[in-house]
Design a protein around this nucleic acid. Structure first.
Lengths: 329, 329
DNA sequence: TTGTAGGCGTTATCAA
DNA sequence: TTGATAACGCCTACAA
């Protein structure tokens, strides 16, 4: 197998096998209307030339690809990487290949949208708070199937989960039974997920005719949040603290523990999005548990349905269960 | 902007702008040898038709793509997802798009290799213990630039790190000064990285004329490792424990702590591959620290060099520093 | 069972 | 500054 600078084409294969383009194409694609003898000749030629079919030419000729695009904000958040793992598992099942895009700001979003459109992908998964209904519309207007994760759009297919009422219940319990203030550790300004959590908390407050204002803005970093929360606990050594991701909650937890506060008796802490890391703190972190890998898998399954039936609109809601561990009473 | 089922081509643009294919192509690609007036007409037509250039046709015509392939075993290991994040950051800088492939077994490897070859990617990053020199050769024989991460192949470009001597030093210290046995928590059978760590430990033992046999096979799961290590510590409540990844080390740590053992005075624990999670246990986990994101970034930079100069062979070695935290003396 | 010829949507060359 | 026209590598009627 020599280092072929000029890559063999189907035409080279045909010539070496003393047959035509069309016949070579047939055996490459496993059609059965080819005689065994010529089939063998073609197979030999393929091996001899180290021929690898050019997927680009194929995609162009067939006017379709095996690629799906996945648009996420960041790949190194634990829960996102788990979702992506699930997406990829399922994609493999359907023979799709995953083109992954990250967006760090608004300009990025437009760039990615255009790329995705140009690449004529089979379908798109959007798991990204940066994108709004209009952005998703840019894709669907171009007739590309899209499934959004965690973005509840009426006219687009989506996989979401219901947690609003459960958060309200937890908060109400704090206010009514435990007589405890609730604090929300907020990382971003623009994240819709955080906004939705916050409004769930606010609604629970309103039910008790109270106003909610305990938003603590924290940096998106374990270490910085840790020291910030140490300062906070020095003044307010009590309350029920809610963070979106577990690493933020763990920063608060460790801050409280290292300040010698009693968790959960003085301070309660929970995360909305728990991962396997919820299990490994001491005390263990209470959190909502959602199987992110499964979420990804189901989302890709939904996309596959959409690819086969482009005019469908599918809405799926997954359960989202609170798991009380050691950091809450 | 209507829902165009039939997507506009450059030909449609040309027709609407009353010009030729070639001229339309010129303005799309920002060539300056086009009169301002026709340029405007073409631009209008593009907007009117919601034209999006077909990257597949372009790739075919130009005989090159903007895609790079990334081959990893799993995307939801924390350290791998951090490497991938770095790879993607850098890819963005060069305008590359990332096609990510995961492999769960041997059959998968061949499948992925063929896919990558067919897709005519610009270059490939291999961060995958499943692939050996022969596999990488399949790619390089086809003249596609490859950078391997953590796989030390003489004839291929790679980014690796040096940790062997440091591990030997740590182990020697245990044997000579601390008079402590070393245990290796081993997850996989075939992982070359684990094998290399193990042989580093063995060499340190040999230096003291001792034979190393303290390999504890653990399942690749926090919970299972946790209970297995509890059983272990019930019988052997001492020693210096080395695990490859921090989540395994943390399982051992929690097992020891929950058994009321004193860490680090009775039991010492460390991880070879530390992540941000090393910081959040109590006591904090001693580990080697490598900036995985930076590792990924540099690897993609290396690939970019290789893409521009295909006959280069680049070897890069990154530092790998032991950070003693609370779980070791 | 096999082969011919046209098409997929671009880029690039060469005249005009 | 423009416009034909030939690639790029494959698929697929349609014919033989």
């Amino acid at each position: 197998m020599s280092k072929t600078l000029k890559k063999a084409t189907i035409y080279d294969v045909a010539r070496l096998a003393h047959t035509s383009l069309a016949t070579a194409s047939r055996v490459i694609n496993g059609k059965n209307n080819v005689s065994e003898i010529t089939k063998q000749r073609v197979l030999e030629a393929i091996k001899e030339l180290n021929y690898k079919p050019n997927a680009i030419a194929k995609d162009l000729a067939m006017n379709s690809t095996t690629n799906v695009a996945i648009i996420v904000p960041e790949i190194n958040y634990t829960y996102i990487s788990h979702v992506v793992a699930g997406l990829m598992d399922c994609a493999k099942k359907f023979g799709y290949d995953c083109l992954i895009f990250t967006t760090e700001d608004r300009a990025d979003v437009d760039r990615v949208l255009n790329k995705v459109l140009s690449k004529r992908v089979n379908g798109v998964i959007v798991f990204n708070d940066f994108l709004d209904e209009k952005d998703v519309g840019v894709l669907t207007d171009y007739a590309v199937p899209v499934v959004t994760i965690g973005l509840d759009l009426k006219t687009k297919s989506s996989v979401t989960w219901h947690y609003k009422n459960q958060i309200k219940d937890l908060v109400s319990e704090c206010l009514v039974l435990k007589k405890e203030e609730v604090y929300f550790l907020k990382v971003h300004n623009g994240s819709k997920t955080e906004q939705r959590v916050q409004s769930a908390i606010m609604e629970a407050y309103q039910l008790q005719n109270k106003e909610f204002s305990n938003v603590i803005k924290v940096p998106d970093s374990y270490k910085k949040t840790y020291s910030l929360m140490k300062q906070h606990f020095a003044k307010h050594p009590q309350g029920y603290y809610i963070a979106l991701r577990d690493s933020i909650a763990i920063a608060a937890l460790n801050a409280a523990m290292d300040m010698q506060l009693n968790v959960p008796n003085q301070v309660e802490i929970m995360a909305i999005i728990g991962t396997k890391y919820s299990e490994l703190t001491r005390p263990k972190l209470s959190s909502f548990d959602i199987n992110m890998r499964e979420l990804g898998f189901k989302s890709m399954e939904t996309l596959a349905k959409l690819i086969q039936h482009p005019d469908l609109i599918i809405h799926e809601k997954l359960p989202f269960n609170f798991v009380a561990r050691g950091t809450t009473k």
